[in-house]
Amino acid sequence: MTNSDAIENVILELRRGVIVLAALSLLDEEQYGYSLMKRLSECGLEVEQGTLYPLLRRLEGQGLLASSWRIEEGRPRRYYVISQAGREALPGLKAEWGGIVGMMGKVLSK
């Protein structure tokens, strides 16, 4: 592994860490996987598709998201939306994120 590969991996790991919070936050309104990826991209968060879609299924398995299949434009799409448990968890996760940003600010300024 070259040095630039290692740095790229670290950046990917950092991004993966924030996808959960970003996805939960944006899935306040129902969206299918591809549209969520486009919205994240519009916000500047480029996510690997192979990472995002399995993550949505895991979050659903953990009860934080709900999903349903719907036929649209003649073909099936799976829509995801934040569940009641996800809504209850979101404020706490946002507060945790605020804490992390503040803490990292202090760590990186030293």
Partner: peptide, 16 residues
């Protein structure tokens, strides 16, 4: 189910 979802996602990406 996963295969069905991947097919749907790939079709979305191609259409876009």
């Amino acid at each position: 189910d996963v295969q069905k979802e991947i097919r749907s996602l790939l079709e979305d990406a191609l259409e876009d």
